[in-house]
Design a protein around this nucleic acid. Structure first.
Lengths: 195, 195, 195, 195
DNA sequence: GACTAAACGAGACGGTACGTCGAGTCTTTGT
DNA sequence: ACAAAGACTCGACGTACCGTCTCGTTTAGTC
């Protein structure tokens, strides 16, 4: 059974895809460009990926696969702050920008990529539940609060900057988003789980 | 000076552009398709608009030009709610979806469309300043609060739904965003003007 | 009866057509270009001429209308030489070049222009008949010779230069063509009238 | 190095070009039309040829490449006759007509095609030199005669028919042109080499 | 010297072809 | 036997020019 240079090629092409995505954006990414950058022929790309969308989807999935740590600083404030900073760090880097731009913009209609967006998002929320539950148990947050809604409140300002206002994504933003979220949660402005 | 059938054609083409934008999205929008839908020849489109981007930019600008009312319900709570609902109403319709998708799709790269996004956003904030100032004078909001930051806090959850989670944009969302924003503002979590 | 500014416009447009023909050739001549050069609107051109072909045909016809003198130097040698020089003078000038290029090249398939070519040619031959007849009567040429064939022999080298070899059209050429033609005629190499 | 179906496509396209040239003429020849006739996509044509002109130039060059035999009938009369007939045969066929029309049509302006005309012409003259030299050695022609001028005298009537009078190109014409040329040569009407 | 009808100016429009680019498929060839 | 190279089809882009059309605006001849 021949494995050949398979894995090496795959890695090179996906890396090249991310670079092209960062340089030109999804709309202007050409398969030829990726292939050339990867030192490979276009045909080779099409042998492994059905089309441009699959290629990009695969490249993004590959990048995102990194583990998201579940914070545990001892208090909900520190945990939320850490969570927000982690997201910011992911989105602020060059590849993060590329991924965000692609997922949320040019490729919004492409099911393959929409799915990634969905999964990326849900994955983050799932990893937040443990420390939110802990905070509820510690009495830092009202009982019955919906972790998903809390997290959405936290990340909303981050995405606003990323996608709409194009202001810088820095750690101050993480702090501010945390403060807003906690204030809202404690005032009961964040709905509970629909149970 | 001859005006001719100019305005009629312009309107027809822009309308067709919005429809195509809603049906197929920016990436799949075809100048020929727009022209055909408008009952017009491709050449005619190119006579009036430099290229696809300009056409779309113009179509969106045209749609957005509608007046944004400055709410005055007597209290900051009602004003914010009205403001949020107005935004939701703009974004929730079919053309709103098309516009949002397009602005985001092209935003990062196409200056023409990025400019529209910027202007759309800044325009909204400008219209919010009067009633926020009133609220400050009435003592409903802390003195020195930055209206722009307050508004960003208000609209962040709306854009999150529109662009990220694809949950429905309804009036409940306006209420919740208002509650969060006010809670945060009163807790001092929203920064003041940098003066 | 209204005549209007018709004649002035007509003349200006035809002149402009000849200039454009000389500058760019038939294939690259644009109606807009002609109109602009004539200080006139394209519509005005189309009001008077059905299309590009008619315009060019008319312009050429107009130029060619000049009288072709019937030479009478007293001998066939001088007459042929004068005839050839006259043709050369017509074809060698700037407009001559333009006309020749158009008639014989780009527009060969266009019936309107092919007709002009035919008429131009036949007209020349008709004007040659008198002095050829005189030469026959004087015994300078064999009886029964076909004037058309003789003239064709005379002008063939001129057209060859004009259309094929692009060598200069000068008076030496007229002399040489005359010599060749007379030698051939006297040797009986030029056929007689088919009667 | 991959050659692919290249040559087959090239041949098909060039053949189609000649057919279209014969059917519609140079001015009305469409790249799409050629492509369709060749059973090939327009893009493929543009991959191999820069533009319409290059395509046509190449097609003509291809057709003309056929070997021109150097006649040797034992006498100048037979040799010239054979030479003239060979030219007539080349020009009289449908492709010959197309080529001639095109070369003349584009000759004045398109350098690519003008070059072909020039080369075609010079090539013919070069092939005539041997048998003219032989004739001089045999004493059939005056010493010092310029072969190029002699050949031009021979072919001038042929081109006149082809390009100007549109009379048929037949073998009688070859005979007559030969007779005229020889008569002129013997009468010393054809100049010698400028040496 | 004012009036009116023909001619003109301006320029948009439908249409056809150009030459270009990128997506995705298919064929040929080399290893 | 299979994978790299690259030629091919397809569809859209943006451009140029043709010939048509519709308006207002001259301008030339008439009364």
């Amino acid at each position: 059974m021949t494995v050949g240079r398979g894995p090496k090629v795959r890695a090179a092409v996906l890396a090249a895809t991310m670079l092209e995505l960062a340089d030109r954006g999804y709309a202007d990414l050409t398969v030829d460009g990726v292939a050339q950058r990867a030192g490979v022929n276009k045909t080779t790309v099409y042998r492994r990926w059905r089309d441009r969308q699959s290629l990009v989807a695969d490249a993004i999935t590959d990048q995102i696969a990194a583990e998201v740590p579940i914070p545990d600083t001892g208090g909900i404030d520190g945990d939320l702050r850490a969570f927000a900073r982690s997201l910011i760090r992911t989105l602020a880097g060059p590849t993060g920008q590329a991924i965000a731009g692609t997922m949320l913009a040019g490729a919004a209609r492409i099911p393959e990529i929409a799915g990634i967006k969905q999964r990326f998002f849900e994955d983050r929320i799932r990893r937040a539940e443990p420390f939110i539950d802990r905070a509820v148990r510690r009495g830092e947050l009202p009982a019955g609060i919906d972790p998903a809604e809390l997290i959405k409140t936290l990340i909303a300002p981050i995405y606003l900057r990323l996608l709409v206002t194009a202001e810088p994504l820095d750690d101050f933003l993480a702090d501010r988003a945390t403060a807003i979220t906690l204030a809202a949660a404690r005032a009961g402005a964040i709905p509970g789980k629909r149970s």
